[in-house]
Design a protein around this nucleic acid. Structure first.
Lengths: 219, 219
DNA sequence: TAAATATTCAATTATTCTCTTGAATGATTC
DNA sequence: GAATCATTCAAGAGAATAATTGAATATTTA
């Protein structure tokens, strides 16, 4: 069929199939944090290097990833275009339609976070007012690749020992890799137990960056 | 892994895989027009009944379709939730990233439609002003299932013979099944050749309905 | 109650995808 | 230039998905 609609549908289906695998979704989440080598991505996802490489190439062929060479390593980063919008749309659909997702979200996430998450817009304003402490609970290396301006990096594992870095009277907003990243949920739960006023950012660093808001990196 | 993120990614991947097949995308497009029997959908897509039934059940299992029984037929309709938003996000990503899609869109669609398409918002206003003729170029039976208020139904095939139904001095807005439906493009091209002022609605009936705007059906 | 109709189910085959393995390529360092 | 390191490629086994066929189910009509 030379029907142009058919051709387009075939390409849309290819894009959908590319997101139709857990490993690739996970790789995309990591790519959204910043540039990474194949080996680093393989470690982060628990895949063999060859397997990670194949999935990454699959992502690249369909525009979800881009690469550049740095010495003997190849660095992958998130592709251009509204990739995170597609994932956000899927997320909304899943939360609406898939009973198991609703269950996981309410059973796990809502239990940890009974209060409303804070939106990007509200956060931006509170940052201007300097009325909150912004807490990035991702590992140090991800923080170094890029983070929200003025954020304090305390990886979740170090939180107990570094409470002194937090002003006790100021509200804390914690964020991490994205909407389903558990780090910030755990951080909120832990800090609440200790009596802090804490909320989560409703999504994470990649969405903030994709929205065109300013970011910082460790130079 | 009991990691809740993994569980959710597995469900997201299933949703994506469900959209990862041309036939199912096409079925979804037809479901978005209104309720249809399995046999009708099989005919519209050129599939065997058994094959269409299997794809439809696949869609239903994942929330993209719902059914009700009407006598000895089973009627499928679009599922609830932001399904069209997911498709719209994919479309934007494809137009941004997939060279072939950009090519098809510019080579085929833009050639036929050199002027800007009209947005839902503008259309709603122009309808209030009664300053346009709204033309639904889908087949009669789809029109009967539901259409924009005040639309005139002239299936593309009948357009030549029914020009008398159009006011010659008033601008025409044509629409059909959705953004990649060729009917309205063809109609615009044909009417332009005949000297009418015509534009396309930027998307189609399902998106209008999904936006919560009023629709009519033949009772 | 039997026949007719619409849909679904089950079994089979063909196709496509995924992962593993080991070798090949490209770039750096010694 | 040889050795090393990171990534990619190529081949093959195994798993999942898709289309076809014919039988089974549920509902209506005769």
């Amino acid at each position: 069929m030379s029907n142009p609609k058919r051709q387009i549908f075939e390409h849309l289906a290819e894009l959908a199939r590319t997101l139709g695998h857990t490993h690739r979704l996970e790789l995309v989440e990591h790519l959204a944090q910043g540039e990474r080598s194949v080996e680093a991505l393989a470690q982060l996802t628990g895949l063999t290097v060859a397997n990670a490489s194949q999935h990454l190439q699959h992502l690249r062929r369909h525009g979800f990833a881009q690469t550049r060479r740095d010495g003997k390593r190849v660095l992958y980063r998130l592709g251009e275009g509204p990739i995170l919008d597609v994932l956000a749309a899927f997320r909304r659909l899943a939360e609406h339609n898939v009973a198991e997702v609703r269950e996981v979200v309410t059973a796990y996430f809502d239990r940890l976070d009974s209060f409303e998450a804070i939106s990007r817009e509200e956060l931006a304003q509170r940052l201007q007012e300097r009325s909150i402490t912004l807490l990035d609970v991702r590992p140090q290396d991800e923080f170094a690749l890029g983070h929200l301006p003025g954020a304090l990096n305390i990886p979740l594992a170090d939180l107990q020992q570094r409470l002194a870095d937090l002003l006790p009277d100021q509200e804390v907003v914690a964020y991490c890799r994205g909407p389903y990243c558990v780090l910030s949920f755990e951080a909120v739960a832990e800090l609440r137990r200790l009596g802090y006023r804490v909320r989560r950012l409703e999504d994470g660093y990649p969405e903030w960056k994709a929205a065109g808001l300013p970011v910082e990196a460790v130079s």
